[in-house]
Design a binder for these strands. Structure first.
Lengths: 343, 343
DNA sequence: TTGAAAGCGCTAACAC
DNA sequence: GTGTTAGCGCTTTCAA
């Protein structure tokens, strides 16, 4: 047992040489045993002595030294523009983190909160740590310009894309999501489905609308363009749009996101209307705290953040193929709860 | 300019020796210039040549090599039990991340999602990277047992504590929080304040109740024990407890958390009651998506997750002093919105 | 089956 | 002012 300080820290760092000495073998042998080198003929007796020495000394290999000699690090960098604002970034990080781990890699995370200097510093740091590659992610799906430093290493964009560059990206399939959300309502017999889209231009806005149209088209049903509304993508927007939705005679609503749905819930309730009886509601995002706990729980479509992060790592490591300049589109699965009923 | 592959990766790694050669100086000189060594007498001319060479070659120092020779790494490990379940863990990570950065350190994050094997692996990994120390955190404030491997390096607990050990911890000040929440109501003249506590035993449960009592005591006001209720710490619990709160003749409620408050909102609204007119409501946690957007926006008390992470780093680095076995208590600030009105 | 030795990229004496 | 040199802890030929 090594001695400890009052706060419990082991004060000496055990090296391979010490293990070798105690086991009475060379460092080469220790290296072979510790790394379980295939094709290394080590006597059972020597191996045992090494293992015992490792145990007794509490030896931990120094990965930094190993990386240095091998010329490769196991690091993957992830720069996120915001881990504060939403729980979304957390899921991207988690997905990347776990997938990296599965491949024996370690994630170096930096959040820039949109600050350019912070971003530059973060990238420099990652490059100095000789990362295997960098994942550049944004919390909301959008087009972005990529910083120059990224070019110094392999990189993949996550939840964003850089039009007109050869950069590979992994993004949510908004069209698929819009279609899925609409189908949730169509499949229950609804035919007058209002779509409360967001007012801010974005891939989500265009994509989900297209999905809404496609879902109708697939059924040979037409879309009454009057049913396509717009509101600020927040509770307040959903609350304010209720009147219009009602006046249009819709029996179901597809909201741009869960927060809009939450606001709509409030407005409907104030009018004494019931969900899903008087109005079926579908959200988007699957923001747990909201969707899972509204009354009634909200049926919605999930933004696949975890999967985005995980796929990003796979693309970076070449485990998943994506053409230069292309985007891998990840499906947005339906999450059925109880805010929809058959018409 | 170094040549690039189709995906934009620089394919060669430039070393200090190459910079030295191109600048026509020794590596020592390069090292001095690059690190801006204090007390290094370098001629203006040589310095300029080095800087130019660095620029032209696109040289990036190899931190791993530097760490190796200096015997110290700039890594700090953070193991979190859950970055998935709540947005809270994200804030702890962010706080730790940014504070570490301020001290020139890099955070190595691992999330275990409660899995023991994952935790063991994560700790082993961090130890192998020769971290300066480890932050061990949980998403909710609670007592915890600490894994043996932690003893191998300096460590600090964040949002949890290990009773009966010399481990230092950083936790939210629940008593302060409970007092703050109660005072929000008391200061508006409310005297019959119901407290919907959680049913699960925890520091939060005991602490907030104590704070509730202290706030009353400070005013010389007694506490009617009948006003202290309990409910499952979720929307559903808040919804179900409404009847009791009302029957007690309370004019204000302090809810164990924002989700309980959200459920209570629903129940009050169903009865045609208005907030804050008919009932003033205070939550706890300051869970943005909820508290900031309920109708009316919820006054609450914030759990200082960011600050917990940041303080953890400071304690670990010795920038903030904490006795072995002691806990640093971080205040829970009030966040005033519009769910309270003067009586 | 095992060991000696070179060297990864860098820093830090110490010499010039 | 600037260069030489000896490692940091490890892997990896190559030889024994």
């Amino acid at each position: 047992m090594t001695s400890m300080t009052s706060t419990g820290r082991a004060d000496r760092t055990v090296t391979m040489r010490e293990v070798a000495e105690r086991a009475g073998v060379s460092v080469t042998t220790v290296s072979h045993v510790v790394n379980d080198k295939p094709g290394a003929r080590i006597g059972a007796e020597a191996r045992a002595r090494v293992q015992q020495a490792v145990e007794e000394l509490g030896y931990r290999p120094n990965v930094l030294a190993k990386n240095l000699v091998q010329g490769t690090s196991a690091f993957i960098g992830l720069v996120a523009d915001s881990i504060a604002t939403t729980p979304f970034a957390g899921q991207i990080i988690r997905g990347a983190q776990e997938e990296a781990w599965r491949h024996g890699r370690v994630l170096l995370v930096a959040n820039t909160e949109g600050d350019e200097a912070a971003e530059r510093d973060a990238l420099a740091m990652m490059l100095e740590y000789k990362v295997r590659g960098i994942l550049y992610s944004t919390w909301n799906h959008r087009a972005t310009a990529i910083p120059d430093a990224l070019a110094e290493t392999d990189h993949v964009l996550v939840n964003c894309f850089a039009p007109g560059t050869p950069t590979r990206a992994v993004v949510p399939d908004e069209v698929d999501g819009g279609r899925t959300a609409t189908e949730l309502l169509l499949s229950q017999g609804h035919r007058r489905i209002a779509f409360v889209n967001t007012t801010s231009p974005s891939p989500a806005r265009e994509g989900r609308l297209q999905g809404y149209r496609e879902a109708h088209a697939a059924l040979g049903a037409g879309v009454d363009e009057a049913l396509v509304l717009e509101a600020a993508p927040e509770q307040e927007g959903g609350y304010a749009i209720a009147e219009q939705v009602l006046s249009l005679g819709a029996t179901g609503v597809f909201c741009h996101n869960d927060r809009v749905a939450m606001g709509l819930y409030d407005a409907l309730r104030e009018r004494g209307l019931r969900i899903p009886g008087d109005m079926a509601v579908v959200g988007f995002d699957n923001q747990e705290v909201i969707a899972g706990h509204l009354r009634p729980p909200l049926s919605t479509v999930a933004l696949p953040h975890y999967e985005l992060g995980a796929a990003g790592v796979r693309v970076l490591l070449g485990a998943e193929e994506v053409e230069p300049g292309a985007s891998l589109r990840v499906a947005c699965p339906a999450v059925t709860r109880s805010s929809i009923a058959a018409l």
